[in-house]
Design a protein around this nucleic acid. Sequence first.
RNA 1: GGGCCUGUAGCUCAAUUGGUUAGAGCAGAGCGCUCAUAACGCUUUGGUUGCGGGUUCAAGUCCUGCCGGGCCUACCA
Length: 573
Amino acid sequence: MARILITSAIPYINGIKHLGNLVGSQLPADLYARYMRQRGHEVMFLCATDEHGTPAELAAAKAGKPVAEFCAEMHEVQAGLARGFRLSFDHFGRSSSPQNHQLTQYFAGRLADAGLIEEVSERQVYSNADGRFLPDRYIEGTCPNCGYDKARGDQCENCTKQLDPTDLIDPRSAISGSTDLEVCETKHLYLRQSALRDQLDAWIDTKSDWPVLTTSIAKKWLHDGDGLQDRGITRDLNWGVPVRKGTEDWPGMEGKVFYVWFDAPIEYIAAAVEWADANGKADADWQRWWRTDKGADDVRYVQFMGKDNVPFHTLSFPATIMGADDNWKLVDYIKSFNYLNYDGGQFSTSQGRGIFQDQALEILPVDYWRWWLLSHAPESSDSEFTWENFQSSVNKDLADVLGNFVSRITKFCRSKFGEVVPDAPADLARAERDALWSRIGPLLKEYETQMEAMEVRKSANTLRAIWVVGNEYLQEAAPWSVFKTDADRAAAIVATALNLAGLYAILSAPFIPETSETLGRALNVTDFDWPSGVDDLARLPAGHGFVVPDVLFAKISDEDREAWQERFSGTRA
RNA sequence: GGGCCUGUAGCUCAAUUGGUUAGAGCAGAGCGCUCAUAACGCUUUGGUUGCGGGUUCAAGUCCUGCCGGGCCUACCA
């Protein structure tokens, strides 16, 4: 039995996430976690909300709420949606937790002791009307290059020229529109990532099995121009982890907080501490996942994320871990994803474009979404959601192939033998099992290999091929005609096919957990242990009772599809 | 501007990393079946691999030039 630590990129707190966010990290992480648990491995699957930063403060202000209250509410909303999507986190934490405050301050202290923190004085734009320093992006003005009047302080969207906020003509706050801006001197802490460049570079070089998407981004940052740059890890904000050096004050840094990208990955660790605290566990129980000197040396740590998160997970966070030099566990494998597009454009939280998690669950059962999203995961390139594709995939794969197979075998059995697994002579039953396993066995091996390699789309294809075998088998064995002349052999066929349906409940659970439960309940499958051989086609013995389940997947009609297409064509109110 | 990724059948994607005749699913066509959610099974039609050069015994795969799509570019997170 292996021990596997799994984290998903932590979703930002400022609103309800869309399906693109889900498919790029949490959903494939959940697929992997569920599979590994079912294979009998010990899994710790952690996620959290990412709660700090300027956008959280602005979203709270817009909602007319104190930021702590806003975040607490949004955390509950996101936790509810995570349950709705059946994300099987061992703990869903909060980056604003006391545990993360303490750990973040601890890491900063360790880094300072190692000489990896530098104090830098810099000039930043302060908005008197907003009462806050403005990040470059939150300053708008006229581009000195092209004259575009909505250029941002970091870059002009119109002519793509990189800008400095002081370049802008007639600068104003993007938050309030106020032009009452001034440039102030302020002091910040920088993490000297440049000092760790060679160590990071050597470490990345050992990761030849990582996706190109992941390593190429890391290499670019390491080698482009002057190489890896130092990074500011503090901000002038009210909401965040107060800057402290371990448990001590940090002179000169009063009133400042750590930058959200410094504390957010540390929350991966803090989530484990929160898990221990919430479940009455000892420190040793979380440390055995995170401290290589306390039992984590045999842990395999896998991270899931969208491609935009890669630099922070390949460089900044490892720099924090390495720099702290205190036996913390480094990531072993990073699985990164491209983006899911929506009907020819991007999903966009800020523009309300696409389908959001709450809306998705409102219109259809969770497994429709899980199946489509996972079987179309944007692994090799960006992928595209269209309603036509969604409708035909779901109707064909789930309703026609899997749902209909379950329906035909359970109903046929009920009409001829009643709602029990029929009794058949042992030799006939054995022959049916052998014949069927010769087709299932190789596909199962392929499925296992792909799941272990986190080949999400391929795994879905193979699972579908395993479902198809059910229909092929019934067609060839034709128990409805055999029954007329040889009831014993028909019984053997039906018993075998019912067992196959039982296996489907088990094998499909990582992808469609809700339906797997429904199917398992209908067939009275109590043992979800992973199958390994032909004898697993006899787990439901003669006389084992079941009920014919309701239709597992109702089809999506053209009318529904058109209505949703229309409803989700614009932007969210 | 720079870096990286990408372009394969009407659609969504494969192709063991340079190796036989480029494969699946959906959609289309034909046949079969009647247990089943008008479902299922079998057979089958679709490709000058974006375009032009080049390297090689051999190129979807490597090099090069165009054309198109995307991401990142360090103070959004």
